[in-house]
Design a protein around this nucleic acid. Sequence first.
DNA 1: CAGTTGTACAACCATTTGGTTGTAGGTTAG
DNA 2: CTAACCTACAACCAAATGGTTGTACAACTG
Lengths: 129, 129
Amino acid sequence: MVVQLEPLRQAEIDAIFHALADATRRDIVARVIEREQSVSGLAASYAMSFAAVQKHIAVLERASLVVKSQRGRERIVRAEPAAIARARAVLEHYETLWRHRAAAIDAILAEEPEQQGEEHARHRRHHRS
Amino acid sequence: MVVQLEPLRQAEIDAIFHALADATRRDIVARVIEREQSVSGLAASYAMSFAAVQKHIAVLERASLVVKSQRGRERIVRAEPAAIARARAVLEHYETLWRHRAAAIDAILAEEPEQQGEEHARHRRHHRS
DNA sequence: CAGTTGTACAACCATTTGGTTGTAGGTTAG
DNA sequence: CTAACCTACAACCAAATGGTTGTACAACTG
């Protein structure tokens, strides 16, 4: 019963790629990978308001790219490499599709070099005479 | 002279991740990887207007994830795996950062097991008594 | 030729995004 | 206790997104 699994996964992937589609957020990810940091520590690094950085962190959090934990009065942000790995897996899936497609084309061209009249011979032999 | 190289690259990466942050667009990418297709052929696959699919393809095109070429009155959309590889490279960069950071922490813990009083011993030994 | 098909593009609309400021609450410092 | 600090969150705004419909045009078809 793998019912309704895809929509959730798709929304997760949407969130991850959307979170990564912003240079400030990618920079936050890089910073907290190198060293976990407080929200205000991160906010001090950017030329925008504290609340704006807070929102960026919230986007990353929704995508599970970072998690926050409390330490005293600070909220410490740390990276969650699993989400990055999931995004990479999606891209690698596409690259695998591409290689399979290339391999299939090669196989067809190698196997039947004489009767290639349908699929792969759209040479538009009627160039608007 | 590597002047002002980053902003452009960042905008490119923004475009790639933004384009991938939508399930319909990811599906279009998968379809054209398997077989290049016309715009109307793609549009027929989705429960939305032709113009909406056209816009999605335009987003993918701006990100260089697909390219269009004319064949007769049709516009053929085909995949551009280089952009996918660039996105994967970004993610792998983060994963490399993560591994380096983990390695550095291990090194510190292994080298100086006695004087660990500052960096990595925040055990909050004062649990709100 | 006229009609159909494939595409582009503009205009419009609702919703989301990315930023701001302001207010309020919890936590530490003096 | 009071003050300073860190954070959350609401309200607001301009711009971008994601969808629609309608119009226009180029290219095949008959």
